[in-house]
Amino acid sequence: MDILTLSDVSKAFGSKKIIDNLSFSVGEHNIFGFIGQNGAGKTTTMKMILGLLKIDSGEITVNGESVKFGNAKTNREIGYLPDVPEFYGFMTPKEYLTFCGKIAGIEKKYCDKRIEELIKLVGLNGVNKRISGFSRGMKQRLGIAQALLGNPKLLICDEPTSALDPLGRKEILDILSDVKKHTAILLSTHILSDVERICDKIAFLYNGKLALSGTIDEVKVFIMEMG
């Protein structure tokens, strides 16, 4: 079954059409690479899936349920990692995750256990300082931990590796391919080597439309044929 489906979604800001009749779907245990230049509409698409932006036409469903702008109940099934994750600087990572758990309505005992697991998974164990003193890479790790907290069926990552050094990038990608066992992942990026390393299916977004999509191998064959 598909976790995420977009059918004929369009979005314009003023007279400028950002997304034009976009349709695609992401299945279970898939890493879906969403590729495009800066300004191609990747972040806009993700925000629409999260119900943070209103769609002009079309429909988005998450786990079979339609997404509503403003009050998206479907967000309970989604974990979101923003491109520049920002958290409350006055909290420690554990406090922040506990706060997220309460907001997401996760049962306390389970949540504490889950936080321990996740902090280990993203390599933040033993870090007890406040988030305001975190580096970019540490924030990215905490971002993954908070996104995975509620065992989401779908993980949305907006440019998770763009601002990291090669080592940090590899670590983040390893975490993501580890997570794949439990959740589907929608990943936006403009770094093709990352895509090749972990994605199962990819789609190129150009001028608000899908220029090309398929599995990695299909796309490779297509590009070779094009010469």
Binding site: Y80, I103, Q146
Partner: peptide
């Protein structure tokens, strides 16, 4: 300005 509310809302917090 920092975008901290996005995390909270995407966690299912009613606005």
């Amino acid at each position: 300005q920092t975008g901290t509310l996005i995390n909270v809302i995407t966690k299912g917090m009613n606005r």
